[in-house]
């Protein structure tokens, strides 16, 4: 056993030596970068990140690993990044909702908007409210009529508490004064499954996720939250033209890192993102997925975040929306 003691002493010594080692950021990135997606596969955040992953990874010269961490309407993934080392190796690939909406609707979140620094925003996914065909309504008016006559009978599925799909539906309910029960799912894909299977009556998300089912006739689009009618679906009315412009929230995707990340690290990521979004192949993949390229630098992203967060807070206060 004496030799064992010797070995463990050596280990301790080496440990002490190792403690003096400090990280160096000048050669960033020199290993794989994790992208934390706060929703399960196939939602807008996931789709967008998967589209840019290969190009972005080629530009940065290191692999990018996509990790889905769903839960708590995206809070779980957000918190995971907020708590991470600010070294640029853990990036939050999210929709706007985890930073602007849920932070206003959930009082006891473990993180705040200020825990994050922006790398940039890059894709927009326009929102749509859909229903399953075969129901007794085919248009927005018929749905509103039915819901008014049968309060509390309808249900809607959202991508989670505090997500854009939740907020869109709550604003929709308030606009028309309807009573529709909310069933939160962990992301767009499960919510879409639930409406396709008839477990809930309505679901809202971005066009990207729902368009294939709309085209195949499995879902009917009732109304969109886009600022103007969407070219691919010209027959779908907008909330704004129905007289509710304030009920138009859309999904946009951005990359964020923990707040204390060094500026030069963020800079490298931002430049790579900008270059990725200029790539023609990426742009065409975005378009084919049913979304729009919309790149904003960190400053513009920050501004958008703050103004949207403020607007959501006002709406929540005025309308009494809560999770």
């Amino acid at each position: 056993m004496r030799q064992m003691t010797l070995v463990s002493l050596i280990v301790l010594l080496l440990l002490a030596l190792g403690g003096s080692w400090a990280s160096d950021q000048s050669d960033y990135p020199n290993r794989e970068i994790e992208f934390i997606i706060p929703f399960p596969p196939a939602g807008p955040a996931d789709t967008a990140a998967r589209i840019i992953q290969p190009r972005l990874s080629a530009i940065l010269g290191v692999p990018i690993v996509l990790i889905n961490k769903p839960g708590g309407g995206g809070a779980l993934g957000a918190d995971f990044v907020a708590r991470g080392k600010p070294d640029g190796y853990r990036v939050f690939a999210t929709t706007n909702s985890t930073l602007t909406i849920i932070t206003a609707t959930q009082p006891d979140l473990p993180y705040q908007l200020n825990n994050f620094a922006s790398v940039g925003s890059y894709i927009v996914d326009l929102g749509v409210i859909t229903a399953r065909p075969g129901s007794s309504w085919k248009t927005l008016e018929q749905l509103v009529d039915y819901a008014k006559k049968n309060p509390g009978k309808l249900t809607y599925g959202s991508a989670g508490q505090g997500t854009v799909s939740f907020f869109t539906m709550e604003l929709f309910k308030l606009s028309y004064g309807l009573d529709i029960a909310h069933v939160p799912f962990q992301g767009t894909a499960p919510a879409k499954t639930a409406v396709l299977g008839g477990h809930v009556d309505l679901a809202s998300s971005g066009f990207a996720s729902l368009a294939p089912s709309i085209r195949a006739g499995q879902l009917i689009p009732l109304v969109t939250t886009a600022p103007k009618r969407v070219a691919a679906f010209p027959n779908v009315p907008t909330m704004a033209e129905k007289g509710f412009p304030e009920a138009s929230v859309n999904i946009w995707m951005g990359l964020f890192v923990p707040a204390k990340t060094p500026n030069e690290t963020i800079d490298k990521l931002t430049k790579a993102l900008e270059k990725t979004m200029q790539d023609a192949a990426v742009a065409s993949a975005v378009e084919k997925a049913g979304m729009l390229v919309d790149y904003r630098d960190p400053k513009a992203t920050r501004k958008l975040l703050e103004s949207e967060h403020e607007a959501v807070k006002q709406a929540v206060k005025k309308l009494g929306i809560r999770g």
Binding site: P40, P41, A42, D46, T47, R50, I51, Q53, P54, L66, N68, A211, P212, S213, A216, Q218, S284, A285, K288, A289, G290
Partner: peptide, 16 residues
């Protein structure tokens, strides 16, 4: 989901 990603980067939407 990773397979879905492979579809998406090639501009193919799996579905009906």
């Amino acid at each position: 989901a990773v397979l879905l990603g492979a579809f998406l980067v090639h501009g193919v939407q799996p579905g009906p």
